[in-house]
């Protein structure tokens, strides 16, 4: 069992947990993820490790309540425990001194971008960050991103805060102004990553994306997370989660992410109907 030692609401339906998991906290590196289960009947949920404190023995998880499993996770509070926590999983981000790195996060994707930006800064890169959300009250980690970036641009789709536009527009502005960038890291909803990659491809600017397909075991055993990269099938859980964004077949990824929409809807409705109390209960 893995006790939750701190919970915070970061934005509407976005929560942050600090979980006691000393072994994982010691081992994890930026870019890696965990899988968790909340109760015996629950799914295995993959989440990026947003941060870790090896001394305290904690890892930080950030999630958006979108379906039944994350909604149920959101009902847990300080003192509750996760039934299972498996990790670290996946390859760590390749971090070295590239020069100038643009770290772009959209929506909940800012959570996985944060540790990478932090790592890139530690490796003495100049970090230019662009973070965005649909609207102001969905924006997360603005302050944290500011601390690890040499430059931070905050965008909202509706203009309710900061730059009015998409993160890709802000990147376009930077490039048009002649800003030199050696590497782009872009994480967020698939349409956002696709637009960023289309933009950087025309300029031959290397772009790393981190993918979040459906997973089951997340150890390379099932292939649920397979994705086409450069025409080859790769497993995101063990070959990724990061890939060259110019090689990823995003259209296929979107379709695969939608494979269980009807079941997800059915589960969520049943959960909400039951007043958010889970059938399995907390154990």
């Amino acid at each position: 069992m893995f006790p939750i030692v701190e919970t915070r609401v970061l934005a509407s339906a976005v929560k942050q947990f600090k979980v006691l998991a000393p072994e994982i906290a010691r081992k994890r590196q930026p870019g890696q993820f965990i899988v968790l289960r909340t109760h015996e009947e629950g799914e295995r949920i993959p989440l990026t490790i947003a941060d870790a404190d090896p001394d305290e023995g904690t890892i930080t998880l950030i999630f958006q309540e979108v379906g039944k499993s994350t909604a149920h996770l959101g009902t847990l509070s300080k003192g509750d425990s996760l039934l299972d926590l498996i990790g670290p999983l996946g390859h760590p981000t390749h971090i070295e001194k590239f020069g100038t790195v643009a770290c772009i996060g959209g929506g909940i994707g800012i959570a996985p971008v944060y540790p990478i930006a932090k790592g890139m800064r530690l490796a003495e890169n100049r970090v230019l960050s662009i973070v965005g959300a649909r609207t102001k009250n969905l924006l997360i980690l603005e302050e944290e991103m500011g601390k690890v970036s040499d430059f931070l641009r905050v965008c909202t789709d509706d203009g309710s805060y900061g730059y009015h536009g998409f993160v890709s527009d802000a990147l376009q502005d930077l490039l048009d102004q002649g800003t030199h960038i050696d590497l782009v890291v872009a994480i967020g909803p698939v349409p956002m990553m696709r637009v960023v990659c289309n933009l950087t491809k025309t300029r031959n600017l290397k772009t790393v994306v981190s993918l979040n397909p459906i997973m089951v075991d997340a150890t390379g055993m099932c292939g649920a997370c397979r994705v086409s990269v450069g025409g080859r099938t790769r497993f995101v859980c063990v070959d990724g989660p990061e890939f060259d964004g110019h090689e990823v077949n995003f259209a296929e990824l979107v379709k695969r992410q939608r494979a269980y929409l009807p079941q997800e809807k059915q589960s969520l409705e049943a959960f909400q109907h039951a007043g958010g109390a889970c059938g399995g209960g907390k154990r």
């Binding site: 009947e41 799914e43 039944k68 089951v216 269980y260 079941q263 059915q266 589960s267 049943a270 059938g279």
Partner: peptide
């Protein structure tokens, strides 16, 4: 499913 959360086609 749906007693257990993991779906299957």
């Amino acid at each position: 499913f749906p007693q257990y959360d993991t779906p299957i086609a």
